[in-house]
Write a protein that binds this DNA or RNA. Structure first.
Length: 427
RNA sequence: GGAGAGGUGGCUGAGCGGUUGAAAGCGGCUCCCUGCUAAGGAGUUAUAGGGGUAACCCUAUCGGGGGUUCGAAUCCCCCCCUCUCCGCCA
């Protein structure tokens, strides 16, 4: 959520930053207008309340000092109180309604891109930052797409998943399931080793949580909702992990908070019909190890860089070739101020595919989720900065392993770092 | 799902419908004192919104939302959550 005060004070500057997103036009004028009205009413109302409070106190005192409750003076005060009440009854709903409207509008505005985010209109203007592992790019000749080799080896079963659920689901079978577990354990162990605290959170989350991390209200159609309850299947562990601290005031010395979690993630993938219809790339349910950080504003840039490196370390350990892309302002996600995508090499398609997205939200989510911190001794509070990134998407990593580690004889070499987990060298 | 109990400030815990934003204790912070020293004393200690150059002022907040009243932490209604017992269940 954007800071209303900031909008009020620097509307042209904010407008300019919003315009960098290109994708859509955002108009601040309505918010400014409603805010103006709201403040007028608030001032007015609070003055009436002040008088009303005063009357209440006066009556109390007089009765205590022996005045008759039926006395002329008190009756007059009561009448004034009553008339104030009528006026307040008119102003209060107006004030509330305006506040709600302003809030609702504010929730629709995306985050301001960081100054350092490259300008651009869309995906095509993203910037490649670096590439890693060219020497590991396998000879593409004859490499089967992961879903084919997976079915051939009997470790991926898409067909029967359709029967159980629908398309875009998978059964991992035998070593397939074991490989998934190995990847999860390996990734968690790696991140725990560099200082992340593991959490196994609920994967059903309520509306407030999804609003806090900005999946709602804009992306309701992207999430699965439980009909009977105010619960949604979480699209990413970012939601429960960030909302862990919703509404809290943290002590400065608790920061930075770094969490990792493995959870299944659920996405409706509405509007992606016909895209990636085969394989593990775009499923309704997939596993992911997520990294989330809550940090002081002055540390967020460095923590972001470190987060990207934590995710990269997994790909490097797995010896999977990848590149790092910095998203341009036009391609930035709704809540992100700055974002790096990690794209892994998929030899069957001779292309890089997103496998991790590492974003810095600045105070955008913290403002929505009301997560603040306090320096001991100092007055007041500040919003934390929130960051998150995949470390990594498991299914896509599995796809990358099945392809990059494919041997000419139709088997898969197990990446060295996974061998202790799988207790196998070849699949 | 049924029955009961309860939700008050960083924590513990008072609170009769009337200067209660809220006693007391603990904790935190500041200062003072010091041959009773793992001590003593004084003060201070919530968040948000609005107004003001500022000192400061006003408003809201005792789980959430409504209501009664001149006035609600206190009374009434609805909801949420926690705990105990029972039922059901991985």
């Amino acid at each position: 959520m954007l800071d209303l005060k900031l909008i009020r004070q620097n509307s042209t500057q904010i407008q300019e930053l919003l315009d960098r997103r290109k994708a859509k036009e955002y108009d601040l004028s309505l918010v400014l207008e409603l805010d103006q009205k709201h403040r007028e009413i608030e001032t007015n109302r609070s003055q009436l309340s002040a008088r009303s409070n005063e009357i209440g106190k006066t009556i109390g005192q007089k009765i205590k000092n022996g005045s008759s409750p039926q006395g002329e003076e008190i009756v007059a005060l009561k009448e004034e109180g009553n008339s104030l009440k009528t006026q307040l009854a008119e102003l209060e709903p107006q004030e509330k309604e305006l506040k709600a409207k302003i809030n609702q509008l504010l929730l629709q505005f995306p985050n301001l891109p960081a100054d350092s985010s490259p300008l651009g209109k869309d995906e095509s203007e993203n910037v490649e930052v670096r590439r890693w592992g060219d020497e590991y790019i396998p000879e593409s000749e004859g490499i089967l797409p992961h879903w084919e080799i997976g079915e051939q080896l009997g470790i991926l079963d898409f067909k029967r998943a359709v029967k159980i659920a629908q398309s875009r689901f998978v059964n991992l079978v035998g070593v397939g399931a074991a490989l998934e577990r190995a990847l999860i354990s390996f990734m968690l162990d790696s991140q725990i080793a560099v200082g992340y605290l593991e959490v196994m959170p609920p994967v059903l989350v309520n509306t407030e949580s999804l609003t806090g991390t900005s999946q709602l209200p804009k992306f309701a159609e992207e999430s699965f909702k439980c009909g009977e309850d105010d619960l949604w299947l979480t699209p990413t562990a970012e939601v429960p992990l960030t909302n862990l601290y919703r509404g809290e005031i943290l002590e400065a010395d608790q920061l930075p908070i770094r969490h990792c979690a493995h959870t299944p993630c659920f996405r409706r993938e509405a509007g992606s019909y016909g895209k990636d219809t085969r394989g593990l790339i775009r499923l309704h349910q997939f596993n992911k190890v997520e990294l989330v950080k809550l940090v002081k504003p002055e540390d967020s840039e460095a923590e972001h860089q470190a987060l990207v490196q934590n995710a990269e370390a997994i790909l490097q350990a797995l010896k999977l070739p990848y590149r790092v892309i910095e998203l341009c302002t036009g391609d930035l996600g709704f809540g992100a101020a700055k974002c790096f995508d990690l794209e892994v090499w998929l030899p069957s398609a001779s292309t890089y595919r997103e496998i991790s997205s590492c974003s810095n939200f600045h105070d955008f989510q913290a403002r929505r989720a009301n997560i603040r911190f306090k320096e001991t001794g100092k007055k007041g509070t500040q919003y934390v900065h929130t960051l998150n990134g995949s470390g990594l998407a498991i299914g896509r990593t599995m796809a990358a392993v099945l392809e990059n580690y494919q041997l000419p004889n139709g088997t898969i070499k197990v990446p060295e770092v996974l061998q202790p987990y799988l207790k196998k060298e070849v699949i």
